[in-house]
Every structure is written in structure tokens, then in C-alpha cells.
Design a protein around this nucleic acid. Sequence first.
DNA 1: TCTAGTAGTTCGATCATCGAACTAAACCCG
DNA 2: CGGGTTTAGTTCGATGATCGAACTACTAGA
Lengths: 181, 181
Amino acid sequence: MFENIARRLERVQTHSPDAQGRELGRPPARPATQSLRDLLDVSDDFAAALAHRLEVNLTDLDAMQHLIMAGPLSPSALAKRVGLSTAAMTTAIDRLEAVGHVRRRANPDDRRSVLVEARPESRQRAMGLLMPMIGAVDAVLDDFDEHDQRVITRYLSRVVETYRGHSARLGAPHAPEAAGR
Amino acid sequence: MFENIARRLERVQTHSPDAQGRELGRPPARPATQSLRDLLDVSDDFAAALAHRLEVNLTDLDAMQHLIMAGPLSPSALAKRVGLSTAAMTTAIDRLEAVGHVRRRANPDDRRSVLVEARPESRQRAMGLLMPMIGAVDAVLDDFDEHDQRVITRYLSRVVETYRGHSARLGAPHAPEAAGR
DNA sequence: TCTAGTAGTTCGATCATCGAACTAAACCCG
DNA sequence: CGGGTTTAGTTCGATGATCGAACTACTAGA
């Protein structure tokens, strides 16, 4: 399932800093914007490496992260978070259960329903790999004073908003009109 | 191929700002770190919406972007960039060719080889959707003065480095020792 | 010129995903 | 209560993307 990891990693390294489309008339991005792009790349790589270490695929890793962060969830709630059909979620949970990362419990309040929870050992193992990373990223902020941290936060929030706006512009083919919230 | 787009989009909206694992003893992330996470989410959503508009899947969109940014590439070079086997790349190029986004040309310098290039109309269409977004993200910087822009750049670079370091720590199962560069 | 290596494709198998159909349980409301 | 309707989860069959291995055509090096 991970035979292509070497390819992924090599890609990162051999990926030459090509002409950046300069000859195509595209405006050269400012360094911050470029770093932003790099960030998206390397975060994918990190996720792939983490999935590899935990012996799951990216989908299942995503599900695991939700379970770890939110606690036990029903398959349907998990499916909604991960963005899968409930059918696909069933098989994803099967996979995670097969390797011992999660277990299914009956939901005491609804006998139709099921609760999926990360097994403590797997949770701990995942946390052990994730936390140093999360902590390190958060710690980057320590080298910036109050003012600068606010600047960074403001910048990132605005970039996120920009993305959201442009996603909406592009598609939202069946955006369900945000019922509720 | 895109029946799950509605699910993806709804996910964004219904995804409650859950307890952030506070009850699990995880340190609450500072706002900048939280925005960083949001950024990774929304950039995925943007890519999905863009792929939908261009009527290709995410893999093929990735390939298209490389072709647009770097100009004509051989299938193998493209495979390396995208992180696919050459076999999978062949079929991805077939798909892109079938919908008219790219074409194959003989490589004049090597009769074994092939050059894949984005068709101008498709390039333009993709650029027309991408550029406003790229421009808007870059323009966010305009609201920050020189000093603050440097702060932002420094922060992002350090985060990227952090990710890289932790990816390496996690895995690099067959990291080929960075021959060259 | 022969041999070894490289570029791309084809082939068969596998895996993740989907929608539809199904089962069981819960929720209405008359 | 007690029927019909909705909801939760699974199973099923089909599809699409991917892989490694085998193959073809070409290049390059001894």
C-alpha cells in the first residue's frame, strides 16, 4: 500500500525550483506566498509519512485523527467529517479495526447506532508521533513577540477567508445553503 | 466522479468547532496555529472545487498544474513530480487527452520519448480560474508593511522547515540521500 | 555491432470508493 | 398502542485509480 512512498519523497527532493512560470508571464509570487505553497506540499508529505508509520492509508489516518481529537463518534458522524459515504466509512472502519487502531462499541442510547473509538494504545502511538510536530509548529510562534503573532494570525485568517471565498466562487455545486449554523 | 462534492462541502459547514480535544489534555493551539490547520483544510476544498470545474480528478489536476507551470514535460518527468508510477501516469495522460486538456507530441531529440503539453485553451481556462485566487492570496500581503511581511515570511519558512524536519524524522523509508541539489 | 539501459505503454490484479438495496431500530401521530 | 416513515449501519455489485511486471521501441556505451 505504500510502495509509492519512495516516489513521493524523491519528488520532494528532485523537484527542481523550476522557472516558476516566469517565462509564461505569471507574476512572480512574493516569498511569503511561495512559502505558503511549500507549506501545502510539505504538509501532504508529512501526512503520508505519518500514515506510513501507522500502517494505514491517508483516508484512514484522517478518520483516526478525528477520532483522536473528538473522541468516540458514530460511523455516520465520522463519514461526514472525513467526507466519505457511509458505505466507504464502514469499510474504512473495518480496515482500522483489522489493524487494531479502533474498536466498535454499541451505542447505549440507540441500538441502531455504533460508536467508534480509537484504541488507547493507537491513540497514544499516534499522539506520540503527532504531538512533537504540533508542538514544534506551535512553538515557532515563541520566537515572535505579541505584535508579530497578531500579524501572523491576521495574515493567515485573511488567507483562509480568501480561499473560502474563491472555493465558493468556483463551485459549491450543491451547497446546501448552510442550514443551521 | 464528483458525486461526493456535496458531502465535502457540507463537511466544511457542519464541522462544528468541537472541543478541540481540550478534554483530552491536548494543549489548546494558539490562533495562528489553528488558522494554519484551517488553511490546510480549505486549500483541499479549493483544489476539489477547481478539479470539479475543470472536469478532472485531483490527480489529473495536479498533473495539469505542473504542465502549466513548467511547460511541456515527458510522462516520466511528470510522473516523478506528481508522485505516480509511470504506468498510472500513462492512464492519467490518457484521461487528460480524452477531455482535451493536453496533447502528446513526439520529442524531437529522443524518439523513445514523448512530450506532454497543456492545450492553450485549457491552460487559459485553468489560469482564468486559478489566477484570481493566486492574486488574491498574494494581495493579502498588501495590507502589511515591509516589516510585517518579513515577519510573515520568516514564520512560514520556519513552519515549512519544521514540517520537513518532522517528515524526515517520521519516515523517509528509502530516502535516496538527496543525490544532486 | 552487440549489449545494457531507458521511455513509454499494456496487462492483470488490487484497493478505495460509490449508489442502491437491505435490516434493524427508533420515532411519529392518529 | 401500532401502523408507516425515517435513520443508522452494513452488504453488494460496479467503477475508477493505482500498482508492479512484462513488453516494445529506441538510445548509448564498450
